[in-house]
């Protein structure tokens, strides 16, 4: 009907008014972010072996790693003393980081994780380079991975473990 749109427009605005607003009241109410949100990159320092893969793969060259080698004395007589990498500095310059997540993908030791934490703005660009202490702190905010969907393929690890059990049996 000609002019029916006028009534429809009024009806839509009135209906929207009776519904709850979509506004997220952010500083008062924390946002409910999904577990895989790309907020910031956390470092699980204990897992890091200083293999440098993350720093090499980083397209922005924003990961800084310093380390030294320590000699681990031989455990038993006649054995050779081993060497171990010790992490001195692990820093990510979030002013350069483009949140591509390649470092996390490439880490073979599960030392890097995404966390939904996002409140780390600074007043100076130079202060956006966060050292390993801060990166380790963020590990506590990493959420557990969401459960798999019903009837989904089992995870690679679970499948491998089951196979090993079957072979044993």
């Amino acid at each position: 009907m000609r002019g029916g749109g006028l009534a429809k427009g009024l009806a839509i605005t009135l209906r929207t008014m009776t519904r709850r607003a979509h506004t997220a009241q952010y500083p008062d109410v924390r946002p409910d972010l999904p577990p895989r949100s790309r907020g910031v990159i956390a470092l699980f320092e204990e897992n890091c072996t200083v293999c440098m893969l993350c720093a090499r793969e980083c397209p922005d060259w924003c990961i800084y790693i310093d380390s030294h080698k320590e000699t681990v004395p031989a455990r038993e007589e006649g054995a050779r003393a081993r060497q171990r990498n010790v992490l001195d500095r692990f820093a990510i310059d979030f002013a350069l980081c483009m949140y591509c997540g390649i470092c996390i993908e490439v880490c073979p030791f599960d030392a890097l994780f995404w966390t939904p934490e996002f409140e780390y703005a600074e007043y100076d660009v130079r202060e956006l380079t966060h050292e390993k202490g801060r990166l380790r702190e963020w590990m506590w905010t990493v959420p557990p991975p969401p459960p798999l969907d019903a009837n989904a393929e089992p995870s690679k690890e679970a499948a491998a473990a089951r196979k090993a059990l079957e072979i044993e049996a």
């Binding site: 009135l14 008014m17 607003a21 506004t23 009241q25």
Partner: peptide, 13 residues
């Protein structure tokens, strides 16, 4: 307030 809620917002809070 009315305009905000008609647009799905909250308006001044």
């Amino acid at each position: 307030k009315a305009m905000a809620h008609m647009q799905g917002r909250l308006g001044p809070m």
